[in-house]
Amino acid sequence: MINTIIFDFGAIFINLDLQGTVNAFKKLGLTEWNEELMHLNSQFETGKISRENFLLGIQKHIPNSSIAEIQTAWNAILLDFPLYRLEFLQLLSEKYRLFLLSNTDAIHIETFEQKNGVSFYSDFYSCFERVYFSFEMGLRKPDLETFKHLISNHELDPKRTLFVDDKKENTDAALSLGFNVWNLQVGEEDVIHLFDKKII
């Protein structure tokens, strides 16, 4: 029987426009998100470089754009966080141990908090026994060490734990360690339909 649920954040609770940042950067003159930029993003998401160095790293590819324009483009992916999802989570937190495990960076989290306000994000975070952001952990999914970190830190039993994420590589990694998983299909499914899945 499931007693613990680990949730991803982006596209599970907060809505994302995956093309938003791509389109915004195109307008600034960035033709492709190449390997160098992917590495830069990975470094930033695991807290290995500062926000300044991350933004300057992107600016090298679009030198005619300001740091402010680049940061705005970077945040174009972030949309709304529907209240009904928070209310569902609050009910869930009364019955299960909950954790948040997100590949994210300092800019996106700061923007989410500023946009939604202290009351909202405090209510959200308080639903979880612990909130894990990759830029604070120094680890990111689907690295198995990320999941092992939670198992050892919180004495989790994967067989009694459900992991919910929209990316298959992440749920596949969790599955390989014995977790129950829900690879949520964005646009077709909503986290509030968790009980309809009959996995808990």
Rank of each mutant, 00 (worst) to 15 (best):
Met1Cys: 11
Met1Asp: 12
Asn3Glu: 08
Thr4Ile: 04
Phe9Glu: 12
Ala11Glu: 14
Ile12Ser: 05
Ile14Tyr: 00
Asn15Tyr: 00
Leu16Ile: 08
Asp17Lys: 08
Asp17Ala: 06
Gln19Ser: 07
Gln19Val: 02
Thr21Asp: 11
Ala24Trp: 01
Ala24Arg: 09
Phe25Val: 06
Lys26Ser: 11
Glu32Trp: 01
Met38Thr: 06
His39Glu: 06
Leu40Phe: 11
Gln43Val: 03
Gln43Lys: 11
Phe44Arg: 10
Glu45Cys: 13
Ser50Ile: 05
Arg51Trp: 03
Asn53Trp: 01
Phe54Gln: 01
Leu55Lys: 02
Ile58Tyr: 03
His61Val: 07
Ser65Gly: 10
Ile67Cys: 07
Ala68Thr: 06
Glu69Leu: 00
Glu69Met: 05
Ile70Gln: 08
Ala73Val: 05
Asn75Leu: 07
Asp80Trp: 03
Pro82Met: 01
Pro82Gln: 05
Tyr84Ser: 09
Glu87Asn: 15
Glu87Ile: 13
Leu89Val: 10
Gln90Leu: 06
Phe99Asn: 00
Phe99Leu: 08
Asn103Ile: 12
Thr104Trp: 02
Asp105Pro: 10
Ala106Leu: 14
Glu110Thr: 10
Glu110Ile: 00
Phe112Met: 09
Phe112Trp: 04
Lys115Asp: 01
Asn116Val: 03
Asn116Ile: 00
Val118Asn: 07
Ser119Glu: 15
Phe128Asn: 09
Val131Arg: 11
Val131Pro: 13
Tyr132Gly: 05
Tyr132Ser: 09
Tyr132Asp: 06
Glu136Tyr: 11
Met137Gln: 07
Asp143Asn: 07
Leu144Gly: 00
Thr146Ser: 12
Phe147Thr: 08
Lys148Met: 11
Lys148Phe: 04
His149Gln: 10
Ser152Thr: 12
Ser152His: 14
Ser152Val: 13
His154Val: 07
Glu155Val: 07
Glu155Tyr: 09
Asp157Thr: 14
Pro158Leu: 04
Arg160Lys: 12
Val164Thr: 03
Asp165Trp: 11
Lys168Ala: 15
Asn170Leu: 10
Ala173Tyr: 04
Phe179Arg: 06
Gln185Asn: 04
Val186Glu: 01
Glu188Gly: 00
Phe195Pro: 11
